[in-house]
Each structure stands twice: as C-alpha cells, then as structure tokens.
Amino acid sequence: MRIEPLHTAANVAAVVAWGAILGALYMVFQYVPMERTMGNVQRIFYFHVPSAMVSFLAFFICFLASVAYLITRRRGLDIAAAAAAEIGVVFCSVVLITGPIWAKPIWGIWWTWDARLTTTLVLWLIYVAYLMLRAYLPEGARRANLAAVVGILGFLDVPIVYMSIRWWRTQHPAPVIMGGKGSGLAPDMALTFRVCMVAILCLFVALLLRRIVVELLQDEVDHLYREADVAPPERG
C-alpha cells in the first residue's frame, strides 16, 4: 500500500477534525444554555456520550477487520484492526474518566456497577489485553492470526457481558440513576449533541488514518532494515 495518499488523507482529516472540534467547543461552552438541574457539569455529556459511541464503533471495526483478515489475509486489514482497537481504547479511556467526573456531583457517587458502566469497563479491559498481546508477540502473520482471534472473541463477548450484568443487577437493587438523559433533550441541546457527535467522529477518522500511516511507516522501516541487511535496534 502506498503511504503518501494516506498521509495526505490523514492531514486533511486532521484539519477537518480540528475545525469540527473547535465548532463543537463553541456550541458546548457558548451556544447551549446551562442545564437547569445538573448545571455546568452536564456540559461534559456532549463529549462523553459521543466518545462512548465512537469507542464502540472502533471495537466493531476491529471485529470486522479481524474477520476480514482471517478470510483474506491482507496485512492492511490487520493494521486496520490494530489501529481501531488502539483508538477505541483511547476513547474508552476518555469515557471511563469523564464518566465519574460527571457522575459524582449528579448521582453523588463516582461509580456504580450498572450494565452500561460495567460493560464499558470490561470492554476496555478486553481491548487493553488485545493490545498487550500484540505488543508481546513478534511481528508477522502469526501475530495477525492470534490477534484476530482475540479481536473476534472479545467482541462476541460484549452482548453477553451486557446481558449478564443486567441480570445480575436486577438481583441487587442499584441506586436510581439516569433521570432524563436522552429522554427528551431540548432542541438546542440536541443540536449541540449532534455537532459534537460529528466532531468526535471526525477526530476518530483522523486518528485512525494517522495511526494506520504510522504502522505502514513501521512496515517500511522493517522492510528497509531487511534490505540493508542491518539488524534493527532493539526496542522495548
């Protein structure tokens, strides 16, 4: 695969993403009025929820790329799966950290083991393990195979985790949460939310492209080392 066109695409996507993020920040901090009951802290919602959606999307892409890799054996798909998983973990971390910051003043607690929160945490753990596995395996077709298997297994697990936690939660009464979020956002809030959704999506695409470019560069460096018959320097 040629790097240059992707490099250009990543640069364009980055410019678009920064524009969209600036627009989204204007909407969040200037345009949209303060939420009446939750106050200013509610403003994190506009980045928190899109980040959650994008991280799920990223893990889904990792799953699809893993399946496609095992069928076609194209290196590009392995790269896509790895990049998607890594960026999914980045957004998932954003979700897991901004969540409690929002939850503490609103619910009075940092964390509750409800189905959504727990599933997100388990998802994060699965994909961190996926990235760790990749880091511990020598680069090559074998790593791609093994990682793809974990990518598939991990994603299949998600609905079962969600179901099991929901079941578990009905056994133990949890604190009542989520009064009205989503259920009837005011029009200007809904608009702000949509703008933020688009902005975070643009950011995701830009990061994904950049990550793929870097991985292709790594491939090229490895290839050049082989060609020059020089042992690559040891990296941790």
């Binding site: 388990v122 753990l125 699965i126 393990a129 760790m132 596995l133 511990y136 974990v150 297994l153 991990g154 697990d157 079962i160 985790v161 179901m163 099991s164 936690i165 079941w167 578990w168």
Partner: peptide, 15 residues
C-alpha cells in the same frame, strides 16, 4: 498473558 486475556472475557461466567 493468559489471565489478562481470559478474565475479562469470562466475566459472564463468573457473574
């Protein structure tokens, strides 16, 4: 590596 990979995936079994 084994427990790190295994435990998140078997959360439903544990529950």
């Amino acid at each position: 590596m084994l427990p790190v990979l295994l435990f998140p995936i078997i959360v439903p079994v544990i529950v």
